[in-house]
């Protein structure tokens, strides 16, 4: 066959290959990848990991989504709009210690919660103004506010935990409702309010992002800022709003975590969890270049990582092997992001 032209694109992978079809399908429905991954993983773990499918563990996983779910929602909005927020996890601590201090001083829940919201919104506003209006680089700005929030929390508390919160606050935000019994759980297990709260927030904010004019503007801003501007979208306002929303999500996380732990500390969430948040968002279909992603995808991305950690703990796998596997998954997902972009 010397001299004969061969079309390698035709012969390398047949057009009707199932793998290729699946690849094209996943490329066109990026939010479904984490859904498929999570469902497959849940089934495999349910069959192979002892106690994974036990009601107590299911509710445990659901409750853990409440810890990082709000941060994932905030990160999704920011990343879809083409930015990134590295400060969210230290804003959680800053908001928590200030709000908790007021709660302890006044023995009242409302002023402390309001203050947590104010602190979260304040940091979101700082990020938003610096990035949207002063045109500073998101990575640098949020890295700076990350340090600022952490330093503020340590200074404010002198590195001491804030304790003695009103029981009403703890009981409301860390409550478990509708106790039931199933599987090996001899004692009744309730549904964590934190999990329900993040589910409701994900449904509402997922709808806003995917089904409203504002949401489409967020996508267009992230996909191509210049085109968005020419189209009449107030790009600065859109970017600003995503950082403010991220600050709000950090404040809500502060409330949930403070109630769950019964205390507020400067080390409530560490940088390792920031990796989890970004990884969950990217697994969920968000692109580090902006313009892509969904709340549904991010939530399932988070569910995927939470189930992975949970199963490792149930199996007694060394946390360091677990870190290696999670790191590998993250690299693979970022690679997938690059492939998707091509």
């Amino acid at each position: 066959m010397v001299g004969e032209m061969v079309d390698t694109s035709q012969t390398y992978v047949p057009r009707d290959s199932g793998v290729l079809k699946l690849w094209h399908w996943l490329r066109s429905h990026p939010a479904l990848l984490p859904v498929v991954l999570s469902v497959v993983m849940a089934l495999v773990f349910a069959l192979t990991v002892p106690n994974f499918a036990d009601l107590r563990n299911i509710m445990n996983i659901f409750g853990q989504l409440g810890f990082l779910g709000f941060l994932c929602i905030g990160m999704t909005y920011v990343m879809v709009a083409g930015g990134i927020d590295l400060s969210s996890y230290t804003v959680v601590s800053a908001a928590a210690v200030v709000g908790a201090t007021v709660m302890v001083a006044t023995d009242s829940t409302v002023p402390g919660c309001l203050l947590m919201l104010v602190i979260g919104l304040a940091f979101g506003t700082i990020n938003g103004i610096a990035i949207a209006y002063l045109r500073m680089v998101p990575f640098i700005v949020t890295l700076s506010t990350m340090v600022l929030a952490e330093g503020f929390a340590i200074w404010f508390t002198q590195a001491q935990s804030v304790y003695g919160l009103p029981y009403a606050f703890i009981d409301i935000f860390s409550a478990r409702i509708l106790p039931m019994t199933w599987g090996i759980s001899a004692r009744p297990v309730g549904i964590p309010v934190a999990g329900i709260a993040v589910l409701v927030a994900a449904l509402i904010l997922g709808f806003v992002l995917s089904r409203t004019l504002y949401g489409r503007r967020v996508y267009l801003t992230g996909a191509n800022e210049e085109t968005a501007r020419i189209s009449g979208i107030r790009v600065r306002r859109i970017k600003f709003s995503t950082y403010v929303l991220a600050g709000l999500m950090a404040a809500i996380t502060a409330m949930i975590l403070t109630a769950d732990l019964g205390t507020a500390t400067t080390a409530m969430v560490r940088d390792v969890r920031l990796m989890d948040i970004i990884a969950a968002t990217v697994i969920g279909g968000a692109s580090l270049k902006g313009g892509k992603g969904s709340i549904l995808g991010s939530m399932f991305g988070l569910l995927f990582l939470t189930m992975l950690s949970n199963a490792f703990n149930l199996l007694g796998v060394s946390p360091f092997i677990a870190m290696v596997i999670k790191g590998t998954v993250l690299v693979a997902v970022i690679g997938l992001d690059v492939l998707r972009a091509k």
Binding site: N51, N60, G63, L261, A267, V269, R270, V272, S309, N313
Partner: peptide, 17 residues
Amino acid sequence: DMDVAKQASDANDLISR
């Protein structure tokens, strides 16, 4: 990893186990 929230999650996982 010195993460207070993660220690709580780890403890929850162990309780579930």
